[in-house]
Nucleic acid binder design. Structure first.
Lengths: 243, 243
DNA sequence: CGCTTAGTTGAAGCGAATCAAAACTAGTGG
DNA sequence: CCACTAGTTTTGATTCGCTTCAACTAAGCG
């Protein structure tokens, strides 16, 4: 929601070697040569919570890879209504393909936490795509995954009750956090505040709050403060997420 | 919703030449050689309204191209709740990429009208993808478009009122019909019944019906029967679709 | 012409939104 | 350390839009 300025740096050519997601994401499937070429055109960017990355125009077609932090893909209306259409965790990427409107059109990436991005300018990235079909192959694979997930979310938004939405959301985040942190502990922090949760599952903050409270009262969740989840009864939470 | 059996035929090698979508869709960008190879592995299928095409398992990863008719991509729950996650018109295609779960997982394609499909078995299609990067390129482009549209629909499902949903739906279909028929006339038939409209925009049939009636009463729509639209006041309909 | 299915209309109920206020949190500076 | 402020979350009371339930009408078809 706030200003745009962000730190942008070109790092040394071996920076990918120490990248947290060197072996995941797009990069995981690439040879040293391919990585080197990517490295040559990348612009690394850091954003603070609330800052936006690109909204429209030529830039909107850049290819963006999240290396650390959490971001949300937002579509908003003039009247204040907002819908989050996806979350981006480390190793997720968006945009990129050389077609008329990239998936970023009319959307914007907004940092939720401190965020680090690898941004690949569209024109130079396209050239690489032609040269290395494997990169395009990987991107297609991810795009189909995202499409699948978007359609899952359509079911949530269109057909689930508030209770089910909240439960589904918590399960989704819990899984993401388990993947990210690789921790077996049930304990983790919600990356989103109530406003953002509401905007992600199509409810109001009050309704979200009420249903989280209900889950706590019923012993399905144990929390510490409004963001830290200490324990989850997955079996019962899954039941409440409803199909 | 009904049984599965369908007519499947292998046609002569030049059948693509006379296909209605030879110059659109995936096929439009392909050379004669590429088309010939596709032709060699395609299974053409006809479905009647209500019939389903694949649901799960290995088949679910086939690549499917609609050549005529309208289909819906459906995700349903055990308890009867249903969400349509996309419509398929001639030249649309789904599935195909060689990744873990294709976008078809847990979805099914259901014929809305008489439907003709080109089905490409996954394994043989994958081989072609490797050989002809242009095919994969085209598919990626389409996947990104679909992803964009799915996210647009998430906004509709999560943040729009019933009135706005109905208006948005009508605008969407009107545009599709204009593309398909190439007719300048305002008149066209809704491909979906009330149940299906409701399942597409996350409402009940009663609410859909009420809001269509309201649009008619207000003179925004002129209809003949429950499926034929004779005239649309696009300006006012667009206003009611709300952003 | 009855039979079945799809669509419309009405009345009542309910779940989520809205409006309003209190409780908590976190940050700042005295 | 506490007082003060701003922002977030929780809780409560009320309203409203959509769903539900039910009856009726229209359309397609043997």
């Amino acid at each position: 929601m706030s200003a745009h300025s962000a730190v942008s740096l070109r790092f040394d050519p071996n920076v990918c070697d120490t990248c947290a997601i060197r072996h995941a994401s797009l990069c995981g499937a690439l040879s040293r040569d391919e990585i080197a070429e990517l490295n040559a055109i990348v612009v690394r960017t850091k954003l603070s919570p609330g800052q936006l990355h690109v909204i429209e125009g030529e830039q909107a077609r850049d290819f963006v890879n999240v290396t650390s932090g959490t971001a949300k893909l937002v579509r908003g209306a003039e009247d204040g209504r907002t819908q989050i259409v996806g979350l981006l965790f480390p190793s997720d990427f968006v945009g990129g393909a050389g077609n008329a409107h990239s998936e970023l059109d009319f959307h914007s990436i907004e940092a939720v936490t401190e965020l680090e991005l690898c941004v690949f300018p569209r024109d130079r990235f396209d050239a690489l795509l032609e040269k290395y079909p494997m990169i395009e192959h990987r991107i297609l694979s991810k795009a189909l995954n995202d499409l699948h997930q978007a359609r899952e979310w359509m079911v949530l938004l269109g057909r689930k009750t508030a209770q089910e939405k909240v439960a589904s959301f918590l399960l989704y985040v819990a899984e993401k956090m388990r993947n990210e942190g690789c921790k077996e502990a049930d304990s983790f922090n919600l990356p989103l505040g109530r406003v953002e949760i509401a905007d992600y599952i199509g409810l109001t903050i009050e309704t979200v709050s009420r249903h989280i409270t209900k889950l706590k009262k019923d012993g399905v969740l144990v929390m510490d403060g409004s963001k830290t989840i200490k324990q989850i009864d997955y079996e019962r939470l899954t039941k409440r997420a409803g199909f």
